[in-house]
Simulated assay, not measured.
Amino acid sequence: MSEARILRMPAVMERTGLTKPTIYHLIKVGGFPEPVKLGPRCVGWSAEAVDEWIEQRISGTDRCANNGGN
């Protein structure tokens, strides 16, 4: 079992190749994993959820009902 990790926005952007506005747009339309609240003004993403999202894109099995047009 791998260790759970939380990624902050710069790491998510680097891992996905997406910009911050695109990530937040995809979250709004249900096409990207929801962030985890870490504090009053701090969020992060499960590395596992982001990696799964990437794998779904690569394999063409995007399971999101609305992928934001991507």
Results as ranks from 00 to 15, higher is better:
Ser2Trp: 10
Ser2Arg: 11
Glu3Trp: 13
Glu3Asp: 09
Ala4Tyr: 06
Ala4Val: 14
Ala4Gly: 11
Ala4Thr: 14
Ile6Pro: 00
Ile6Thr: 15
Arg8Lys: 13
Met9Asp: 01
Pro10Lys: 00
Pro10Asp: 04
Val12Tyr: 01
Met13Pro: 02
Met13Phe: 00
Arg15Asp: 08
Thr16Trp: 00
Thr19Gly: 03
Thr19Arg: 04
Thr19His: 04
Lys20Pro: 06
Lys20Ala: 05
Lys20Ile: 01
Pro21Glu: 05
Pro21Gln: 03
Thr22Arg: 05
Ile23Tyr: 01
His25Met: 06
Leu26Lys: 03
Lys28Ala: 11
Gly30His: 06
Phe32Glu: 03
Glu34Trp: 04
Glu34Arg: 14
Glu34His: 06
Pro35Ala: 10
Val36Phe: 08
Val36Asn: 07
Leu38Ile: 15
Gly39Gln: 04
Pro40Val: 14
Pro40Cys: 10
Cys42Gln: 15
Cys42Tyr: 15
Val43His: 07
Trp45Val: 07
Trp45Met: 03
Trp45Ala: 01
Ser46Tyr: 00
Ala47Trp: 05
Ala47Tyr: 04
Glu48Asn: 11
Ala49His: 05
Val50Cys: 11
Asp51Thr: 09
Glu52Val: 15
Trp53Val: 10
Trp53Asp: 10
Ile54Val: 14
Glu55Asp: 08
Arg57Asn: 12
Ile58Lys: 09
Ile58Phe: 07
Ser59Gln: 12
Thr61Pro: 01
Arg63His: 12
Cys64Ile: 03
Cys64Gln: 05
Cys64Gly: 12
Ala65Thr: 12
Asn66Arg: 15
Asn66Cys: 12
Asn67Phe: 08
Asn67Pro: 11
Gly68Ile: 00
Gly69Leu: 04
Gly69Val: 08
Asn70Met: 13
Asn70Val: 12
